[in-house]
Write a protein that binds this DNA or RNA. Structure first.
Lengths: 239, 239
DNA sequence: CGAGTCATTGATCTGTCTCAATATTAGTGG
DNA sequence: CCACTAATATTGAGACAGATCAATGACTCG
């Protein structure tokens, strides 16, 4: 009985302030509930969508952690991002009506399925939502530009420090510690994202550790000197 | 008199098939004319918008060639893309209502200024246009993912061959030769885009030339063996 | 508890960068 | 028209960050 009254609803979601509903009025929020068709559980290692799948929906992450990646014909894989609660994935599918990358859950996850037809319909009705959808896509474009800067211009230490600072910042916005984190991805996945080999990732972690900047034990990381990390590279410092 | 009747108009623009109007009906096309406020000339070396400028409009390139680039606090510059006729720039500004990169004309250019408020208003009215705007943004996201793959996984020769193939393909879609092109950017700008130093760009050009794959003379390039280039790396081969 | 996955560390190799010199071109003014 | 300058491009030699190859260690999960 309790389960049946449990309703998918943006209006009482605890990610209200991070996800789609940002800036919407109470009335608009309730309309938005209709955009979200269902929720879907994705267990660790499972693929939410893969390259070539036909595109129907965007996904808002409720819980869990994802990676998105593209791969070339010869099998090389490039992780294009890591996504956490409140973030929207699937935007890559809009251009060609089929997805252009894979989205894999790095831990058990749950997503809100938002059929894109609903999103577009609602966007036409509510300018606030329309603007929000545009901002989400634009934010992704700006993020990508930052990654290009990282991959094109930065050295291994700068890349890893930017990566760590970006992660804790986003985790902190979700109520987690600003100094401690548990990585949900392997060294190889970090390396793929940052354009370096897993051994180099590991070595750079060890170097930071030797210098007393961080404490590392496998997936667990504690940032001891955030300022030192920022001096190596601050991801907010693009001008 | 003739000049006065000359009207900014998408409905009779020769880029109809490449730019915003794609897929619109005659009626919608005429409405779209109202989106474009004005045209603006940008001469070589001039900046259309720069990082920090407040965002008001998207720009459709009518003629000419642009680069977009971001720069870090310490002055390192990353070229994030090269844009030509029919392509839309300015999307980076939507998230924060101010631009996040610089757009510089690499040759004398003319753009159609599309105030974003108009674009959004018209999008609410015409689902076809709404979908098109979404596709343009999504296409940019997918392009960025391709650049990440390039920067994260590819070697110098692969990067340059992908770059050349991508350029001629886009030029060919605009009626230019599929084998000959004049580069509008310096070796340094190519290098910045591809995450390599200008000397390496130059050396790689020379290597391709020695192998008889291309003919190079400064900015002028002729592709002699497109298949050989594709074997090194085909930008359409993401799977 | 055992097998497989993941992480660390060492030794060596290599693609690209750096530094440096020269060549080519475009632009300017006499 | 030519000389001069500044910007751009090419090419070489040597250095180095990160890749590669390889071995060991730590953790996870059935």
């Amino acid at each position: 009985m309790l389960l049946e009254t449990y309703k998918v609803a943006c209006s009482n979601c605890n990610l209200r302030e991070l996800c789609m509903p940002i800036g919407l009025s109470q009335e608009e929020l309730q309309k938005l509930d209709d955009v979200v068709a269902t929720r879907r559980k994705v267990s660790q290692g499972e693929t939410l969508y893969r390259n070539g799948d036909s595109f129907t929906s965007l996904y808002a992450i409720r819980t869990g952690f994802f990676k998105t990646c593209v791969s070339s014909q010869d099998g090389r894989e490039q992780v294009t991002g890591f996504q956490m609660a409140g973030e929207i994935i699937g935007l890559d599918g809009i251009t060609s009506d089929h997805h252009n990358c894979n989205a894999v859950a790095l831990e058990d996850a749950e997503v809100c399925v938002m059929p894109f037809a609903n999103v577009e319909e609602m966007s036409r009705e509510f300018p606030v939502l329309q603007r929000h959808v545009h901002k989400i896509m634009s934010r992704e474009i700006v993020r990508d530009q930052g990654v290009m800067m990282l991959l094109g211009n930065m050295r291994a230490e700068e890349r890893l420090s930017a990566f760590l600072l970006n992660l804790v910042q986003r985790l902190n916005a979700r109520g987690f510690s600003r100094s401690e984190l548990v990585l949900r991805m392997t060294r190889e996945e970090i390396g793929s994202y940052l354009g370096m080999k897993l051994e180099t990732v590991s070595r750079t972690f060890s170097k930071f550790s030797d210098e007393g900047i961080i404490e590392v034990k496998q997936r667990w990381v504690k940032i001891l000197k955030p300022d030192a990390l920022k001096r190596i590279f601050d991801p907010d410092s693009f001008c």
